[in-house]
Design a binder for these strands. Sequence first.
DNA 1: ATGGTGGAAGGTCCA
Length: 261
Amino acid sequence: MKIVTYNINSVRIRLGQIKTIVEQLNPDIICLQETKVEDNLFPIGEIKSLGFEHIYISGQKSYNGVAILSKLPLFDVHSLDILQSDHKRHIGGRLANGVEIHNFYVPAGGDIPDRELNDKFDFKLRFYDEMSDWACEQKGKSLIMVGDFNVAPLPNDVWSHKQLLNIVSHTPIETDAMANLQKTLNWLDTARHFVPESEKLYSWWSYRNKDWEKSNRGRRLDHIWITPDLMPKLESFLIMRELRNSENPSDHVPVMVEIRD
DNA sequence: ATGGTGGAAGGTCCA
């Protein structure tokens, strides 16, 4: 079973990228973030025609929005409202084999890395605390948690550890919050299971760099974590870097893991 | 200290 996570930054203008993902990876499940569309305007028909019979959406106008596109049915699908914000930032459900999939879009947190000066940064940190509380309640389950977590945890998850230590997404208070979440169920960061921590690894490059590939100032913001019981089933991992060069790309690229059924 | 780009909405916010 192949699972992809992709911050698509508007599902309606990037159906072509979904088609490319299907052609090149043929995933069973695609988890999207930042769909940026209300549910009644979601392009259900187009995505069904790409082979995803089961589509689960939790969208809102203009901002946020998550979706799970699946060839397999999910059960007890639900959308958590973390911090009662009305932001659509989670959708999850359970596969027939009992494994649960949870798709999160963690708040970006604004520009100023100070929770006193910046409400969005405070919101992000509280969101992580809520996720940790939620994870503690899931003890004993087989879980796959994916999404845009908006934190690059390790020194080689950013282009310059030193230069990003005070930049939102890589500050110690954020990487600590993420580490706390990771400790809750001893989550495995699948990317670093396959790619050693000594290697640079990114899933996002800003739109604001003239030549993203030449400057290569990336960050690894998109993650696929699993509970340790699933570790023996891991088959492969891929970051679909080339999609950053597609026509009209998202600033994120898809991240994929393959797990034996 | 600032601006660089993009999406959606719609005379601006969020990333």
